[in-house]
Design a protein around this nucleic acid. Structure first.
Lengths: 204, 204
DNA sequence: TTTTTTTGGTGAAAAATTTCACAAAAATCA
DNA sequence: TGATTTTTGTGAAATTTTTCACCAAAAAAA
């Protein structure tokens, strides 16, 4: 199947939202409710789901737990995935213990930093290493995804290193867009740009 | 002018990238170079800029410093804007001292948390307050933007409070989409969803 | 000076995405 | 039972966004 990025992004959000609904014990959810929680329309939600061949029940909506299961398997969000964080400054070390990742099946299994000093000072139950041991650690632990929290100046270099070690997914928190090989998926989260966007939308 | 969100987002990224170019001392930049740094095409960059009435120089490209200035004024990214952070856990307190914000004209002038205990323990040069004093502090300091770093369960409540205090822009790091009044601009940054997106794109 | 090359500007075409409209199915109600 | 309501599924229409094609201008080269 050939889903657009927009569709994938929405489906992932639906998946996340279903987790929340599940906790409330509600059994069915309509496309309109999902749309509301997403800031989309019910048409879009139904179309997105139908692109995956997922169908609901007339006059009832979609069954929460089976929808979650289907999305999980169709989008491959079901299994556990291992990730590492490179750059253990304030943000990086905050993310080391970000519980939401674990809850969602993303396991942070290693942190890397250049500074041995920093590695020694850090307090976390996750194992941390000097960047030099990246290759070994990534191979050994089977790490698939890398989270970049180094300053912009070093982001590309870290991305190269990560992909060189076989990492196929990159979440980049630095403000520079990193370029990666074709097969690698990279997403940028630039906080400052988000504030700029808000400021621009606000005008005045 | 009526720019699409995509266009606004790209223009903001261009603005950020121009800062980096400026430091290198390069005077002109072509639409193709900008496109490369953005992961867009040169057509798109030129069209985006032309939508703002910004024009470059034949065979030279755009003059870096004046382009930055024009974007800054047209998108209202030039002035300083005050923001606050609500929720001073790991992430929130990391963001309190995120230097990039300050560099870009976004001043974090207050942090809020429910727990007085946390407020006492926190080490930062930015003033922190109990949530109860939000209204006063926001009015007094002229805070325009709020950054939400509380758990999802409380995100909507915090958003309501912020908008109730007159905040018009919200950057929401919690995994739940908050709903805000029409005039308010809100952007969600859901880390977990970014990882999901990467996982879904990777497949396998 | 003339030609060639590079780069922007932009209306038109193409592609992608979203919305609509309405049939079909199931639950509810009279 | 039969009418009514609600909600999905989806092809078609509408809208939005991106890309293309080509001109003009200016710099560089010849």
């Amino acid at each position: 199947m050939d889903l657009s990025n927009n569709t994938i992004e929405r489906l992932c959000r639906i998946f996340g939202h279903l987790g929340a609904i599940e906790k409330t014990g509600v059994e069915f959810v309509s496309s309109a409710e999902l749309a509301g929680a997403l800031g989309a329309t019910s048409y879009t939600v139904r179309k997105d789901l139908s692109l995956l061949g997922i169908t609901g029940f007339t006059r009832k909506g979609y069954e929460v737990s089976s929808l979650k299961k289907e999305l999980g398997s169709k989008l491959r969000l079901a299994g556990r995935r291992k990730a590492c964080i490179v750059g253990l400054g304030r943000l990086g070390s905050a993310l080391l213990d970000y519980e939401k990742f674990q809850e969602d099946g993303f396991e942070i299994v290693a942190g890397f930093d250049r500074s041995v000093n920093k590695l020694e000072r850090i307090r976390t139950h996750i194992e941390v290493y000097p960047v030099g041991s990246m290759k070994d650690v990534i191979k050994e632990k089977g790490i698939e995804m890398g989270i970049i929290t180094v300053p912009g100046e070093h982001a590309q270099e870290v991305a190269d290193r990560l992909t060189g070690c076989g990492v196929r997914g990159i979440l980049n928190f630095s403000p520079v867009e990193v370029s990666v090989p074709d097969k690698v998926v990279s997403v940028n989260m630039d906080f400052t740009n988000a504030l700029r966007f808000i400021a621009a939308k606000l005008g005045g």
